[in-house]
Design a protein around this nucleic acid. Structure first.
Lengths: 250, 250
DNA sequence: AAACATATCCGGTAGAGTCGAAAGACTTCT
DNA sequence: AGAAGTCTTTCGACTCTACCGGATATGTTT
């Protein structure tokens, strides 16, 4: 092949994506959903079952726990994750709010770890959850730490999608804020992704001053007023610094 | 195709498996590891990158956080998971030990959720971790709740692999224990998977009396003596019952 | 600057994936 | 119960595409 990618593999993953996004289904239904002849979908699902990434339960195909396993293994190999582990717990305790570790992947902000009583509580904050960089504090913290042309590239490619009425959609406004974030060392968002939710995040740098992630604290607006905001900003910045130090010893 | 499965897809997943098991690598190295011509490996990796399941970081290919995402989405769709969520937290609090939710998948015991201060603490207990059914309390709890011929099938297919000196390797001993477990309503293992670790688990049934999973509490032998063992058994059994009730309302 | 290692590109060909059609399982309706 | 309908699985022929050796490009080391 070469310049074009492998069709079979593409189609197999189209099925996986479909199962992941819209849940399990029967052969004919899935074939319909991904727009594929039934026999072809059947063949692929058969192969996927053999690989162990898909299974058949109650006459419906669905993804297996192998995805969780692969995801967790990868996570344990990531230096930022290892470097931040204990810190995240501390942050959650000190603030009493959700503490999360974000990284950037494929121009998006992705949650790597969540710390709080139950990791299942928040439907919007689970490991692997991804969102536009410009719409969340940790994303902005990371953008602020990237070279400007990189930021422009990202805006060009994906635009500034509006998630709530408060999402930043104007590049100039965004660049102003990134400047501000660089100055103060942390980023804030107020309902820019989810209405009523405030997030405060600090970037994590490695020894070469490249951003490796961001530590974020989120909570309902009602619980996080001006003064608490400053407290939390201190906590996340301190945690980010400790993480940076840990990073060198990993 | 038909009776034989799709080679391209198989090979793509061989690469994914390799990345997951032994970590990232360069094209030529990976090609070597999965025994594939370099150009072919290159083509597949290219396709995988396009699907978003693999990425290139620091000149090494590695799996992306998409696996975490897919895994978590699937988990949220599983009824047992939704039914057990709050209970698991309660169990962890009441016992002060790790509480985990297990399910059976592909003849193995798989961890679906872990509850305890930090979900990252235990390298052996993370969502997606899989292990032989006969070597852990939750596995035995689930085996005890299956029809005998199903259990025999599993033993035939996989044998009774020895993980520690205390692992049950004799089918007769196993069947005796399963009988006992059915009688008392919970299962115990003492260092049968990991030396020095005690686990106590109760099976979760649905309204049709089919096992859907098991709730498990694990801790170091030193901390769990005879009397605590009974206490914990009560806690996990109660939690399993509550979960069963929840299951009907999901 | 040359020598080496590794990644990427290219193109012909064998062989594999694709898909229509037919057969086989299940369900549902009468 | 039997039949009609729906969905899944099997089959085979044709076509397309995945495959891989070799050439080129990129990057690294001496």
């Amino acid at each position: 092949m070469g310049r074009t990618s492998n069709r079979s593999v593409e189609r197999a993953f189209a099925l996986v994506d479909e199962l992941a996004e819209n849940g399990g289904g029967r052969v004919s239904e899935l074939a319909e959903r991904v727009d594929m002849p039934v026999s072809t979908a059947h063949d692929h699902l058969q192969t996927l079952v053999e690989t162990g990434y898909v299974r058949m339960e109650d006459k419906e195909y669905q993804t297996t726990t192998r995805f969780l396993e692969v995801g967790h293994r990868q996570r344990h190999r990531l230096e930022v994750f290892k470097a931040v582990r204990d810190e995240l717990e501390t942050v959650a305790e000190e603030t009493g709010e959700h503490a999360t570790l974000f990284v950037e992947e494929a121009d998006q902000a992705v949650i790597l770890a969540v710390q709080e009583g139950s990791d299942a509580v928040n439907l919007f904050a689970y490991p692997g959850a991804r969102m536009p960089l410009h719409a969340v504090a940790p994303g902005k913290a990371m953008l602020a730490s990237m070279p400007t042309d990189r930021v422009e590239e990202i805006i060009d490619r994906h635009g500034l999608v509006e998630l709530t009425s408060r999402t930043i959609t104007n590049p100039d406004v965004l660049f102003d804020q990134l400047e501000e974030i660089r100055g103060q060392g942390y980023a804030v968002d107020e309902g820019e992704r989810i209405a009523g939710m405030v997030c405060i995040a600090a970037p994590i740098f490695d020894k070469n001053d490249r951003v490796r992630g961001a530590i974020c604290v989120c909570g309902p607006q009602s619980r996080i007023d001006e003064t608490r905001r400053d407290e939390i900003a201190d906590v996340v910045q301190r945690a980010a610094n400790v993480t940076q130090v840990n990073l060198d010893y990993v």
